[in-house]
Write a protein that binds this DNA or RNA. Structure first.
Length: 111
RNA sequence: CCAGCUGGCCGGGCGGCCGCACGCGCAAGCACCGAAAGGUCGCGCGUGAGGAAAGUCCGGGCUCCAUGGAACACGGUGCCGGAUAACGUCCGGCGGGGGCGACCCCAGGGAUAGUGCCACAGAAAUUAUACCGCCUGCGCGACCUUCGGGUCACUUGGCAGGCAAGGGUGAAAGGGUGGGGUAAGAGCCCACCGUGCGGCUGGCAACAGUCCGUAGCAGGGCAAACCCCACCGGGAGCAAAACCGAAUAGGGACGGCGCGAGGGGAAACCCUUGGGGCGCGUUUCAGCCCGCCGUCCGGGUUGGUUGCGUGAGGUGCGUGGUAACGCGCAUCCAAGAAGAAUGGUCGCCACGUUCCGCCUUGAUCGGCGGGGCCAUACAAAACCCGGCUUACAGGCCAGCUGGCGCU
């Protein structure tokens, strides 16, 4: 009842640093870091878009496209008890939206 | 119509579907997360990036800290007057420069307060100077001689002196033009122009003047070189600051148990007291260690809340002012995140661009129809305002200037 959304967000620097200690999954468009917390609470996800990816407008757009793709398509692919950090690369801004959705889903399901 | 100048404005629109943040209303359970503080979950409605939100270059509000005054140091500003909370901003003037003009540009105090710098070229660059040149005299050459000199030549060179007009160098060469003057010249003298100083007139002032007097008058630049003069300036910043407030470690107080010493008692235990322990011979000095439990207090980290948007506020009208702006009245409330909301996707249209065909025209322009492309540029609030600077696809409006044409 309290939790309606199927996943939460990472919001604190300490949480992000924790995930870095976990498993890393490379691939196109972005780097994915994952770590099991050891409980069965809903999955949590965070986005990292560094300054290398452009000015504030471009960084915002990258984060929002990833966020939206995750929400509409890949939310159910995440496993409870896991934390995910998605480190974006510049291509995310130009690639078709469909590509992001497919790639997100594929990488999340990979073990 | 063409070319241009100035000022102002916009910076896509409409609609599906799925979402985000905040506010308000209703609803909600002894619900959930959390140690607490506090937060989360439903439905509806409303609101939700910019002209630069940017760079963080100035100025102010606000917060905390500091603070007796003054001077010095350091930093900043720099024609005058005004506006303002304040400014390095704005407005109106002044001066200088550019443009036919509308108009634009200026880091625009002081270079006889002092110190310093100025490459190359040039004779000389701030105590100015004399290369060529100009002028005078001497001398020299040839001839004659009564040995005193005379005549011719006047060219080249030499020596002594005078000059600063002309040439040449340079970013800059000691006012300019004309005349007098002189061997030749020079403010050496004169007239006019220019300049400095003093006065007068106008202006609050910067400053101006076809006015008067006075000085023969010069000394180029650099003060974003030091400097001088005048004025201004406490420091740090919303990660400011205030409040609420775990565990653990550490601090303090109190109580109990324990430890050492002494005393009492048969013992349990009670009373008094505070020092005691460690090292391998001992003593001294230095060093190190001194427990466990409970309650309370204060500080304080993770965390949370506030700060946080009614303000130097917007709009309209009136009014004072050349203007910046002030005043009065009415009216409106308009983002508030915190790994950071304002989005994703689709459709239609506008706008733009390009191609083709037709019409029109001398040609361009323009009009109509159809197709393709892009779906815009720059750039996203981070406590809040006033500015400056920089970036920007495309477009609109107003006023003005100079041409050309027509009436």
């Amino acid at each position: 009842m309290a939790e309606k959304r199927p996943y939460g967000r990472l919001r604190k620097r300490a949480e992000f640093l924790k995930v870095r200690e976990g498993q890393r999954r490379g691939g196109p468009l972005f780097l994915m870091e994952t770590r099991a917390r050891g409980d069965m609470e809903p999955a949590r996800v965070g986005f990292t878009v560094t300054k290398k990816n452009g000015n504030a407008v471009q960084r915002n757009r990258i984060r929002r496209r990833l966020k939206e793709a995750l929400r509409v398509h890949a939310a159910t692919d995440m496993v409870p008890g896991m934390d995910y950090v998605i480190v974006a690369r510049k291509d995310v801004i130009a690639v078709p939206f469909e590509t992001i959705k497919v790639e997100l889903s594929r990488r999340l399901r990979r073990k």
